[in-house]
Design a protein around this nucleic acid. Sequence first.
DNA 1: GCTTCCCGAGCACCTACATGT
DNA 2: AACATGTAGGTGCTCGGGAAG
Lengths: 358, 358
Amino acid sequence: MSAAETPPGATPPPDPPTRRGRAKRAVSIGDVARLAGVSSQTVSRVSTGHPRVIPSTRERVLSAMKELGYRPNSAARALRMGEFRTIGVVLFTLSSTGNSRTVEAIADHAAAEGYAITLIPVARPTQDDVLGAFTRLEELAVDGVVVIMEVHLLDTATVTLPPGVQLVVVDSDAGDHYAVVDSDQYDGARQAVRHLLDLGHRTVWHVAGPTGSFAAERRAEAWRTTLKEAGRRVPRIEQGDWSAASGYEAGLRLAEQPRCTAVFAANDQMALGVLRAFHEHGRSVPDDVSVVGFDDIPDSAFFIPPLTTVHQDFAEVGRRCVQRLLQQIRREATDADAGLVPTQLVVRHSAAPPRRAR
Amino acid sequence: MSAAETPPGATPPPDPPTRRGRAKRAVSIGDVARLAGVSSQTVSRVSTGHPRVIPSTRERVLSAMKELGYRPNSAARALRMGEFRTIGVVLFTLSSTGNSRTVEAIADHAAAEGYAITLIPVARPTQDDVLGAFTRLEELAVDGVVVIMEVHLLDTATVTLPPGVQLVVVDSDAGDHYAVVDSDQYDGARQAVRHLLDLGHRTVWHVAGPTGSFAAERRAEAWRTTLKEAGRRVPRIEQGDWSAASGYEAGLRLAEQPRCTAVFAANDQMALGVLRAFHEHGRSVPDDVSVVGFDDIPDSAFFIPPLTTVHQDFAEVGRRCVQRLLQQIRREATDADAGLVPTQLVVRHSAAPPRRAR
DNA sequence: GCTTCCCGAGCACCTACATGT
DNA sequence: AACATGTAGGTGCTCGGGAAG
């Protein structure tokens, strides 16, 4: 269906060279009204589902709509109503399982409520870029925003959200300046470390996510605290960046520490890298060393060996985001405590008691 | 920042109980004009960057804007201009690497052109659901759509896109009814099979993606054709559904075929499952059997062993989508042949010559 | 008195033209 | 005549008030 050439004489020219600049000329409510022989706001009533329209009139309007291929102009509607019925999602990348699943859940639930979602990617995960996105937000037609990023630095007055735009934040601590929804990172990490300790390991090494990530820092913090509470030695942290490659690097270093018998990786992809590093060094998992991950990505059940990891309910996070955001937009009461989504250890085969304990 | 209660007497009530239903009252161009002591027209000129405004006036307007926290109302602008400057993306899931990366690239390039992107998820990957999405499209404020799904069944007149809405399709063959952008699935699969054959394998087994997926069917077709052209036996196809779990199932069946020395999996996740199945059966990869995947997801370099696979350039696919769509929207000339993005084999360690050939 | 419909107005913005320098 | 600014009109839709059935 090439737009470049029109089949000669096929249809009466739908877009004659009237109104120059305009690319398209939408069918308006008035056109429908004329064809149906009613006034335009009767058409409006029909299209908004208003009850006070006599069935026969409604039928007439409906068929006129169909005949003309009428579609309501949402810009006009938005202008009149003062709301866009869309929510923006600010994020750095879609390439992490967590983000894409959260976004997916947000989109699904928003759609169910009649809201569209628009993506607002930022080039780098920095405060400046988020601020920049907020500026672009001014141009964007959104009633609310959910930010899937660490933003705790911009908690004070630095942020100037357009008036009336609501905000919910994921993967961040924002004090009580904004609503926050997130998985219970801390408890998840605690479960992972405790599991390893309960298995009989004297202590647990940690491959952490990037600094500046709230999730990474919470997980590291929980790891450290759990160890200390159990009176164990806290080994030097291995720094990663979420990628399998960084997990592999860290694993290479860990594989050379003979005393390392248990590793908690801050996500499954780094755990994958760790697994491979140990494999290359001939250190068997879980016979020689145990590994626990975080996220429970679908693939993790098929790693070699199947990964013991912490399950995150991203769908629930997404659901609560839109629920909370919509409450704010509609100025309803907000259930303040709904922010922490539970997290759960799923035991597979990558963690076992250490050799000497068996 | 609770919206529920206003701190008593802190600010002059910004939203007095005038206009009842309205939630918010935006700062309009007229408010700025009044404060700056100019006409609203001049404000408009400033905000669109029109050159014919004397610097001192511009300054005055700009500071008035800042003081009032003015943001242009995109609904009004859209209404006036007849375009929304946003493009919709219809897809089934974001959970596949390919989809999320493509969407990300689309979002990035769209943003660069001043277009926002809105997500339109469909519940199931069926024709009905796509059609349903197209209906909802009528309500949505988009100038164009890219559909990331198999849609070739709706190629004829069944589709009623809102007038003026442009369409580009990924991961589908749509004849020449719509513009299509995609990776060169066929050639990629051909390279994978040829690589295995060149290594000395007599034939190659195939773990396919779900029926109904264009990509899956193209890859299977290329596998079959390449085998036949080389005069090789075409083994029974193993049906999968993209998931690692399905790859594992298929791998279990394959592991019992002693003559199977080479497997081409239609994506990396299924390859992961295959790897694990062979591992469990004590069949070494690549010593006993070779495995090649498709997609080149980042993790695949850290599988055990690192996976030989076919690289897809999702970013380029996304780029071409928006380029093509924008051309259609702007009614520019369209470079018709820009649809096929090359694909390339990347050799790692999961494929080697068969035992007896060494 | 009640339902069913129409008229007019206005939401925030931009194009075209008129006006005054 | 070139430039800077203002005025009028119109974009599609929905709400308030009123008029007809």
